[in-house]
Design a protein around this nucleic acid. Structure first.
Lengths: 237, 237
DNA sequence: CGCCTCATTGAAGAGTATCAAAAACTGTGG
DNA sequence: CCACAGTTTTTGATACTCTTCAATGAGGCG
């Protein structure tokens, strides 16, 4: 490995740690200490990063790329719980309890991750209580999100669920544009279906309806342009 | 207030703090410090403890009784997110972020709560990092639970949802008995429906089916006896 | 004991799942 | 740059299940 690459990897490490919300309260020196604990790893699109039931004793932070977190239902379909992207982390569940992974993680595109050993991270938490507060904040955000998801799933309003997902992706991946908000969809129709508990056919139909109404426009299968974001927002509350 | 009552209230305080998982790592002296920060309050059955949109700058721990945490859907129905009981806490969401309550809390029966001011609690967290770890653990558990809920709601399997709720209540409130597991239902049929996103009629029908199959037995409206818990467990996974 | 509330049961209707087939897209190779 | 093959998506018809609306029945509590 050349000196140049070494440097580059270190840069990425720094980037990784500093870009992550949970380390945002640390100063440069402290950040350096965190970086020294990090191991880096690359996964190609489609690769499984974590398999349900395997031991997981690292906190894992996504440096670049994106992943889906999912479980398998009885019928063998996958239930997607989260789509995570740069700066998101997972594995915190096992920091205290010694338990195996309760979910699978798969790279949706080429993805670089940073890992911190559980024991190292615990030391870090005791040394910098503010990191704990940040993590609690993030966990609270996730709870918020899941609570909202449940609320949406509770209502029989299927349109609201579909619109909510499109809005979520628009917030995460949308780019403003003369024509509206251009969104690179991270999931296929089937993936979206597995995310919100519907079938791929229903997703197709609902999206076609949105197109007929002029609210969205499709650019191939993998991109959409949101022409009328207010309409989507209104429908979900 | 008589001296006797004073004493009693202090006892309850101690009880409150020591019974709560998140303080389980503290020794007696530290616990005393926590207790001194606690304010106590009583609510009667049906009373609202928190209203969505109000400011909430306390961590609230349930000392005795039980409450439901819910939001209102667009259609005015309530979506129940949690049923909390002795030892459970809420309000941690607002410890860092300054935000208003995103949910309502109502006493399902006569309930005593303990409150710790946000600022006091933050000091506590910085002084005892282990409390943070405990809270993270509890938040993780809640995430787990919600993720499972979503998974169940994602599958179109309505029976599984109903059975899962009955099992949840059996774990929380069930008492073993010669006839099976006697469960005091904390929610009415409509409440259960609002918890898992169905209608009260559907709950009735599904429970009647379970009775026909001999899996449960109803004792009035508010109690059930689970005769065959394996059947329930199998159905959900 | 009687009233009021909550739960159960029945019938009809609405909406999504399922099954099947056609159409559109993606990306590879010439 | 175009054509082709494989995959993904869209569209259509039918079936199933839950919701809705309505009426009856059972419990809880004064």
């Amino acid at each position: 490995m050349s000196k140049n690459e070494m440097c580059c990897m270190r840069c990425n490490h720094e980037l990784c740690a500093s870009r992550v919300q949970i380390f945002s309260e640390l100063n440069k020196e402290e950040l350096g200490r965190v970086v020294s604990l990090i191991t880096r790893k690359h996964y190609s699109k489609g690769e499984l990063i974590i398999i349900e039931g395997s031991t997981l004793d690292n906190l894992i932070i996504i440096n670049s790329g994106q992943v889906k977190i999912f479980r398998n239902t009885q019928e063998g379909k996958e239930q997607i719980l989260y789509v995570f992207t740069e700066g998101d982390f997972f594995g915190e569940k096992n920091l205290i309890k010694n338990q195996v992974a309760t979910f699978n993680v798969e790279a949706l595109e080429d993805t670089n991750i940073c890992m911190i050993k559980k024991s190292d991270f615990q030391t870090l938490l005791r040394k910098f209580p503010d990191i704990s507060l940040k993590i609690m904040e993030e966990l609270s955000n996730r709870l918020d999100k899941l609570e909202s998801t449940i609320q949406k799933m509770g209502t029989r309003n299927v349109e609201a669920r579909v619109n909510a997902v499109l809005l979520e992706f628009a917030n995460k991946y949308g780019k403003h544009d003369a024509r509206g908000i251009l969104v690179d969809l991270p999931l296929s129709r089937e993936g979206i279906a597995n995310y919100i508990g519907l079938t791929r056919e229903t997703i197709s139909r609902k999206m076609s309806l949105l197109m007929d109404e002029g609210i969205i426009e499709m650019v191939g299968y993998k991109k959409i342009i949101i022409k009328n974001i207010q309409a989507l927002e209104q429908s979900i509350e």
